[in-house]
Design a protein around this nucleic acid. Sequence first.
DNA 1: CCCTTTGTTGGTAGCGCTACCATGATTGCG
DNA 2: CGCAATCATGGTAGCGCTACCAACAAAGGG
Lengths: 344, 344
Amino acid sequence: MRPRSRRGGGRPTISDVARLAGVGAITVSRALRQPERVSESLRTQIERAVSELGYVPDPNARALASARAEVFGVLVPSLTNNVFAEVVRGIYDSLSDGPFRVQLGNTHYSGLEEERLLQVFLSQRPAALIVSGIDQTPTARRFLEEADCPVVQIMETGPDPIDMMVGFSHFDGGHAATAHMIEVGYRRIGFLGARMDPRSQRRLAGYRAAMEAAELYDPRLVTTTPVPSSVSLGRDLFRHALAKVPTLDGVFCNNDDLSLGVLFECHRASIEVPQTIGISGFNDLDMMQVAFPSVTSVRTPRYEIGRQAVAMAKAAISGTRPELLTVDLGYELKVRESTTRPKS
Amino acid sequence: MRPRSRRGGGRPTISDVARLAGVGAITVSRALRQPERVSESLRTQIERAVSELGYVPDPNARALASARAEVFGVLVPSLTNNVFAEVVRGIYDSLSDGPFRVQLGNTHYSGLEEERLLQVFLSQRPAALIVSGIDQTPTARRFLEEADCPVVQIMETGPDPIDMMVGFSHFDGGHAATAHMIEVGYRRIGFLGARMDPRSQRRLAGYRAAMEAAELYDPRLVTTTPVPSSVSLGRDLFRHALAKVPTLDGVFCNNDDLSLGVLFECHRASIEVPQTIGISGFNDLDMMQVAFPSVTSVRTPRYEIGRQAVAMAKAAISGTRPELLTVDLGYELKVRESTTRPKS
DNA sequence: CCCTTTGTTGGTAGCGCTACCATGATTGCG
DNA sequence: CGCAATCATGGTAGCGCTACCAACAAAGGG
């Protein structure tokens, strides 16, 4: 019975390389994955055969045989949100030099979607999983606990990690921005929040704690919506807040899209910033320091979170689990013109 | 000789399902992929067995056996650029309901990196490939021509497609914005360009054609840099341009990040927009219509490009190649306050 | 009533690779 | 100089799935 004609369209396989190099297939496999375990003479022969044939290993066959795909599964709630785009960039940049591929999933901020995607990812037996946030559903959490690969939760830190964690405290970030505004003299400071995912909630909690500590908290100062964040939404929320509380003298925005919308609306309505209204944002996008006036914001280590998550996962894969399983990369309050009142 | 202990950690396989349902493995395979070719009674039995065991097919085994992975390979030059983030979102959204995964590659605007990633992608035998732009290197082009799967070039259209194309004319977009500014009375209109990838070059060519047609072209009006675009770069380029040509009365920016930087710099330097300087951007990010003054921009169908590319690839996969292999989704000039002079 | 046609089901043999074990060669040691 | 320990290499048997073909039943057609 003749072998069926090559299904795969004639791409060279490992045994083609082995034949050309005059060695066993398994030796080629070893030469590619653990070159130091093959003698130098064979190794150069094999390398020559590989480049002559243009051989590229089939990752599917490799994954099937070794019960482990060289894939990092990455789950983020949004692809267009600048914050996650930066995180994802950090992940890609850290992975581009190695054998690992990235499998990106967009949960759209939905726990159910996260569960579904986790099942899909796990069916590939990934080398590591990186998930956003610490508020997984019980089912998702069980999937992650039972996955026999390193798991990194990113964006924030908290108690009871599934495995590893990289992030910072959104509560503290929200608290720091608010406390700063109070300190420079703002009193009726509003909170503008979009989406209100768990991290936004914690920023709000930080705001509230700071306001309560100064005996300035008033629930009417808080304006939130489940709608996704955007610059135009920032404008709308601000108008809303101002209508509700005409004595408003500052706003702390959930994120920088909103603060940009507030800034533009202030220009349009001839409201002086920072004299009449102080503005503080969150994340510190590049444009915040270019804006006029430049906008105070909480700088968050987005790119670095991606890098660090990959570094920790890689360490765990190679057997040397990092001693610190939870890494807090912190944040930095960038004070700028939008909260710098001439008079103190 | 006993079978070696399950390498894969005991996840159920297709034969576990087959045994439980009392059918052959191949029938389970068929029931999952072409349910209409299995009798209803068996199908329900199999479905019950699948959900009882929590069976999820192994995509690696599937890809190996069928010589075809259910993967869309997607190559973009940047992950953080808002434009590509939108395209990628369109792709993900169109693919989330089907069996296909996405394999995303970041070329960093490098032809060499594109070639390398193509090789990696092709080793998986993807179901389709989506690549950005029409200026592939000869090697990359050969890879794509020899790939036995649908190929879609996105972002722009042009002659000589590899297979299919979805995009719009960057030349025309640049031309339209410039012609509009000329029409409303601007004369010394500068061009600000960052990155200057091939699409930026074509926008510049459109600008130049419009300026030359009005006998307004002057090379000193053009300010470009290979540096990646950012809001702060917009500010810097504008300062530069103004120093070079103090009589500048308008700028057409390569993209909206730059135009935002220009707008902020005008605020800071108390330059009146649109009276003293007119501003026009490219891409029409959400914030352009919220800005004060709102900024004229060329709206580009980014999300739609992603959707359309996937739709065409899916059609080709299912055997019904679209009759139109090149789709021009057009653009739309959004005229706003930043180019609306009180006097005409 | 026999013979094709159509539809449903299953068996066999891989896909390309690596885990596991076996083999032989070399080394080190008493 | 014999024997265990170490090293380099290879053979075999799958990983979990599907392409291919065979088998059989049911349904028509003459």
